[in-house]
């Protein structure tokens, strides 16, 4: 009983939010890209590049410039993916897989060049510190969850309605969705399909880069090439689970975040399950959650994954 109480404490909910933040950012990136008709399984690599660059930036310039650089690095990866899959019409899965492979190798090469003597893991760098929002933290229950958090956590939570608004209420959102559904129709109406996809995929990279930067200079304070641990893919699964909508994806991310926070809580509470098995829990949950979608019609954008070649 006492154990259960511990596991459902406000601290667990607060850490749910922290764990969910990079997932939310990745899944928002997934929504942007796939709504425009470009599959992006490179989110993982984009996060990793964002995480690495943020650490480098933080090392030389401080955490906030590091954050900006991390976001931009993700964006660059997005641009690369867009160039490959939109301009050249390459297989989008192959193109984004290449990004994932590169993002594992490149930082490992650069780490010993930047920090001689370091291999695989960067030194610790300055982080973006949590902030206290007095107004919120004074509210009884919510205050404990939301009152004292990292600024990027708030940014991610705000980005959910922002991206949702962008995609479903604005002109550019309508156009992005139209090229994801029926690029030829959009083309006949004078919409530049390539431009829309470039915008969407680059934004996807920027969001993933932010997610990565959060991991390396907020959630932790250093970089290692295994730090994303499949979060980009979980974000992608969350996007599918949320039916390609930012709000649905966020809910799914919170669910995964909770699962992770729960297992961490269980570990520290001394539940007699080996830690490695508990660590596998979020991945199992992702699979189970996707299976749970059974019978509901797929709502994937109709042109998702198909290169558009002008006739």
């Amino acid at each position: 009983m006492e154990l259960l109480f511990k596991l459902f404490s406000m601290a667990v909910f607060a850490s749910t939010l922290r764990i969910a933040t990079p997932l939310i950012l990745a899944s928002l990136g997934g929504c942007m890209s796939e709504r425009s008709g470009v599959i992006n399984i490179g989110l993982e690599g984009m996060m990793l590049m964002g995480a690495f660059t943020a650490v480098v930036g933080s090392f030389y310039l401080g955490p906030w410039p590091g954050l900006i650089l991390g976001i931009l690095a993700g964006g660059m990866m997005g641009l690369l993916h867009a160039f490959m899959s939109v301009t050249l019409g390459a297989n989008q899965v192959i193109s984004s897989t290449a990004i994932n492979i590169m993002a594992v190798g490149l930082p490992n090469i650069l780490i010993p060049v930047i920090w001689p003597g370091h291999y695989g893991i960067s030194p610790t760098v300055g982080v973006i510190k949590d902030i206290n929002i007095p107004f919120i933290s004074s509210i009884p229950v919510i205050g404990k969850v939301l009152g004292h958090q990292n600024p990027i956590v708030y940014v991610a939570l705000i980005l959910v309605p922002v991206i949702s608004y962008l995609l479903f209420k604005t002109r550019i959102g309508l156009r992005i969705r139209s090229v994801g559904e029926h690029p030829r129709a959009a083309d006949t109406l004078g919409i530049n399909v390539y431009k829309m996809r470039y915008i969407a995929v680059t934004m996807s990279g920027l969001l993933a880069g932010l997610g990565g930067a959060f991991l390396s200079i907020c959630y932790q304070s250093q970089f290692s090439s295994v730090m994303t641990a499949g979060r980009g893919f979980i974000g992608l699964a969350a996007m599918i689970f949320g039916r390609w909508t930012p709000k649905g994806a966020m809910l799914a991310c919170l669910l995964f975040g909770f699962a992770d926070a729960f297992q961490a809580g269980a570990q520290s509470a001394g539940v007699p399950i080996p830690p490695e098995i508990l660590l596998a829990f979020p991945y199992v949950l992702t699979l189970v959650a996707l299976v749970g979608l059974l019978g509901k019609t797929a709502v994937s954008p109709a042109a998702n994954g198909k290169p558009y070649l002008k006739g």
Partner: peptide
């Protein structure tokens, strides 16, 4: 109908 030529008010369609 409006795609590609959307009347907007601020940012919103």
């Amino acid at each position: 109908l409006i795609l590609g030529n959307e009347p907007v008010k601020g940012l919103k369609i």
